[in-house]
Structure formats: C-alpha cells, structure tokens
C-alpha cells in the first residue's frame, strides 16, 4: 500500500512544521502551501488523499479554496478538514456546507483531530459497510 498524501494549507510556518512532523511520523507524505493560489496549484500537482485547510489565508480565504476545488474535477473528491482559529459558531456550518468533511478550531485536540484524519482517509472503516438496502 502506497503512503497516503496529505496537503497542509496554512500560512503559519510553525504550524506547517509541527503538524507535518507529526503526520510524517505517522507515515503520511506531507506537502504544504501557504496561500489560496498556490494551494490549488500544489493540490493539482500532488493530488493528495486529504487536505488540511486553514480559513484565513493570503490571496483569498479557505472558503475560496473549497469553492475552487468543487469546480475542478481532479480535486472535487478530495476530502478537506478545516483547521482554523476562527469561531466555529458560523464558520463550522459554512465550511461543512462548502464541502469540508470536518471542522476543527485551533488548537485541536490531538486525539480527535488525528482520528478525523484517519476517518477521512478511510482508514477506520470500509465505506462499503455503509451500504445497506
């Protein structure tokens, strides 16, 4: 089985550094982008299995990235977990409506956050078990 690829889109270099260290230690391949424009470019080049997305980004925010991804056939199916410092009150629903699979406010609880990553990557269950007539 090939390594799962995760793209971190966040303009905080320290977060990139820390989170990618953690994810690499777990056996994922990690790439990073720091703004909305390069995010799409990197995503199309890397075609990751999962994207971790910040909402406050230079050159457009995370919602713009989500919107662009919905329009691109090669990116539309990639699950996105939003990780933002913003208040979840309104942003959580908005992010999920825009296609994100989960929303975490910074700093996230490690256990829950890594669990959500595994779940989004389909590592916790076989999707086929969902199917029932």
């Amino acid at each position: 089985m090939t390594e799962k690829k995760i793209l971190i889109i966040d303009d905080d270099q320290h977060l990139q550094l820390g989170l990618s260290a953690r994810l690499r230690a777990r056996g994922y391949r990690v790439s990073c982008a720091a703004d909305a424009i390069s995010a799409i470019t990197v995503a199309r080049k890397e075609l990751p299995d999962l994207i971790i997305l910040d909402l406050g980004l230079p050159a457009g925010d995370g919602f713009l990235v989500l919107e662009r991804m919905r329009d691109l056939a090669d990116l539309v199916a990639i699950p996105v977990i939003v990780l933002s410092a913003r208040d979840p009150t309104d942003n959580k629903k908005r992010a999920l409506d825009a296609g994100a699979v989960a929303f975490f406010q910074k700093p996230p609880d490690n256990h829950e956050f890594l669990g959500a990553i595994r779940h989004a990557l389909g590592e916790t269950m076989a999707l086929s078990t969902f199917l029932k007539t």
Binding site: D12, H14, L15, G18, L19, A21, R22, A25, G56, A85, R86, D87, Q105, K106, P107, P108, N110
Partner: peptide, 16 residues
C-alpha cells in the same frame, strides 16, 4: 483568534 495561532504551534510542538 490571534492568540490561538501561536497557541496552536506551542500545542503541536509540545505534544509532538
């Protein structure tokens, strides 16, 4: 919001 960003970095490095 601004406090959360550095706090997250500290949290991640500490837990790492």
């Amino acid at each position: 919001h601004e406090l959360r960003t550095p706090l997250t970095a500290i949290y991640i490095f500490t837990t790492n």
